[in-house]
């Protein structure tokens, strides 16, 4: 998962794509993931941490992770 470089994320979960002018709102977990991805954290590490902290099965997380990627692609936020 490689976010476009110029994507702006805010602490309150807002995402702004300066190339298209689109704004997005992320729910807390998505905002957390994006912030850490921006910091260059590896997806494996992010997922491991989520499994550690949240009440979710690994299979479910994998599925939702794929769905998040699909959304990021749909919204043109990935490199």
């Amino acid at each position: 998962m490689k976010l476009k470089k110029n994507i702006a994320t805010s602490e309150s979960g807002f995402i702004f794509n300066p190339a298209t002018g689109d704004s997005f709102s992320a729910n807390p977990l998505a905002a957390d993931i994006l912030a850490r991805a921006k910091d260059g954290l590896d997806p494996v590490a992010i997922k491991a941490d989520i499994l550690e902290r949240y009440d979710v099965a690994p299979g479910q997380l994998e599925k939702d992770w794929d769905d998040l990627l699909a959304q990021l692609r749909e919204f043109n936020l990935l490199d």
Binding site: S10, G13, F14, F16, G21, S23, S25
Partner: peptide, 10 residues
């Protein structure tokens, strides 16, 4: 500014 719009829209 886009931040204002984000506040209003979200």
């Amino acid at each position: 500014d886009h931040t204002q719009f984000q506040q209003a829209a979200a």
